[in-house]
């Protein structure tokens, strides 16, 4: 596991913990979109269908359980907990989230890497995750009054997305066969989409900063290639066998 992936997972975990902290201790879900949370519960349930069949690592299994458990408990709190329920901004959270699900399902049926139930569901979860934040962004725009915890939640979520992109860039150069173009492209789309949306400044700033660092890492890779080409051209010019410095 590379540092971008680990940092991405950690910021994802922090975002969930921030939200749980707000809901569990302050007993408030003001400014939090139930629609987005329901979509995330659907995202994790369709993505982690392999949780009991394929074992990758203890880390993966534990994290999957945390994301499944936390997303369903957030939905439960917002729907059924007496105190939390009261702070839910129902009148502003009117995004028709069901209309996001169907296009994602159709897209997953059309564009996937393998036509099996698990794989199509995985692809569906990737597409849905890319747009699941939309009801939340719309709610933030409508209410305007954004408290610290909600702001931090969205910031960490944006950081997680961007760090995962860096992770895929890194993996593309170190283990190209592992890179799934579906997830990379859909994540890039959501970043571009957010730029167009221009709603939430911290989300945008985090994405911007991390995109800049993606370019930096791309630049470093180019330098490494330049190094290679230097030796390559030299060996060709002097007509000797190519050897690279350790």
């Amino acid at each position: 596991m590379n540092v971008f992936r680990l940092a991405g997972d950690m910021t994802h975990l922090i975002s969930v913990l921030v939200l749980l902290l707000k809901i569990h201790t302050i007993k408030s879900c003001a400014g939090v979109s139930l629609k987005t949370q329901e979509l995330y519960a659907l995202v994790f349930s369709t993505r982690y269908l392999d949780i009991f069949t394929d074992f990758t690592s203890l880390y993966n299994t534990v994290m999957k359980l945390i994301f499944l458990g936390s997303s369903f408990s957030i939905v439960w709190y917002m729907r059924h907990h007496k105190l939390v329920q009261r702070s839910y901004d129902k009148d502003h959270d009117t995004f028709r989230h069901q209309f996001l699900v169907l296009p994602c399902l159709i897209l997953a049926l059309l564009i996937h890497e393998q036509f099996t139930f698990k794989e199509v569901m995985w692809t569906f979860s990737i597409y849905l995750e890319a747009v699941a934040i939309l009801p939340q962004l719309v709610l933030l725009q409508r209410t305007r009054n954004i408290d610290n915890l909600t702001g931090q939640y969205v910031f960490f979520l944006g950081a997680y997305r961007s760090l995962y992109i860096l992770n895929w860039i890194y993996r593309y150069f170190t283990e190209p066969h592992y890179v799934h173009w579906i997830s990379t492209t859909s994540m890039f789309c959501v970043v571009l989409f957010c730029f167009g949306f221009t709603i939430f400044k911290w989300y945008l700033i985090s994405v911007l900063l991390l995109t800049l660092s993606a370019w930096m890492s791309g630049f470093v890779q180019t330098l490494l290639y330049a190094d290679f080409f230097y030796y390559y051209i030299n060996s060709w010019k002097n007509n000797v066998k190519l050897t690279l410095q350790a």
Binding site: D50, E113, Q114, W122, N167
Partner: peptide, 10 residues
């Protein structure tokens, strides 16, 4: 080339 697609990420 592998039979199933591996998903080792979250």
């Amino acid at each position: 080339d592998s039979e199933t697609v591996e998903h080792d990420e979250l």
